[in-house]
Amino acid sequence: MATTVIETKGLISLDRFSLETLHQFHYQMTFIRRFEEKVNEMYTRAKIGGYCHLNVGEEGSIVGSISALTPDDYIYTSYREHGHAIARGIPPGVVMAELFGKEGGAAHGRGGSMHMFDPGRHFMGGWAIVGAHLPIAAGAAFAINYRGDAGVSVCYLGEGATNIGAFHETLNVAKLWKLPALFIVINNLYEMGTPVEKASSVPEQYKKAAAYDIPSERVDGMDVLAVHDATQRAMDHIRREREPVFLEFMAYRFRGHSVIDPGRYRTEEEVKEWMLRDPILMLRERMVAAKLLDDAAISAVEQRVETEVQAAVDFAEASPFPDVSTLFDYVYA
């Protein structure tokens, strides 16, 4: 894989995907969007507390990449991970129940928004200390090699996490030890209120991989098809060459850093401009133009999503809070 930049690539043809896959992308992105909007609503109604970071705007990056993984692969993410968890197949009700702090949640109410987990689905956690999950993800890749397992360790991070020491230590050992690891930076241009150019001496994150001789590529993260294509090529490369790959998906969060951040450090024009590149609308436009989708089909999907998101809320409501008598469970084995 060569190091390329986003501008040099044309659109990926719809023909390369089955109709079913395209509809699946459309449905999943629509679902995550609606789910996150509902999370926001539930937060304002105090059903959810603590830090809560939404994936709104990043659906293309998430759905396009996770759909290119196999059940053998492992996923590590930052705290902005509701969408990743759902795309990986954790039932939305279980994700919502975690957000509600309920026993039926992904971490039995112990972890909340930032700590979704499902070992059966190889969803190895949302993590809340920036950059700290990178070496842990590399450790999974180490174990895969050690045991001769199939699978790749896929580690998502924000562009802000590339400035911390753990990032550089991890990339170095990943290449040195030929670890089957895929690092995916979702570059949404801001680490909290700080624009990427103010925090990274090299704002193009994919270039940082070059320092460790790790193949890398910058991809339009708002284009679910481009993301899927790049991820698939990356995974093929990792499996074939037994070495890490680094992808940078250019995306944008349409909301603040967390649900309580009004995002005053960005201009309205900038947000509007990015919203024109909404990953859901972009796929819809292309599918409509190719006559694979029409208004009726879109509203059918929206209806279905509405019902399913409500079912997730109902599940979360119905699940009990953990009993205080279980407070010491899980401190030790």
Binding site: G49, G109, R110, L327
Partner: peptide, 16 residues
């Protein structure tokens, strides 16, 4: 503080 890592769930956190 009760000697556990801080749990998220409100009733548990209140107990800690």
């Amino acid at each position: 503080g009760i000697e556990v890592p801080m749990p998220y769930s409100k009733p548990l956190e209140n107990a800690v």
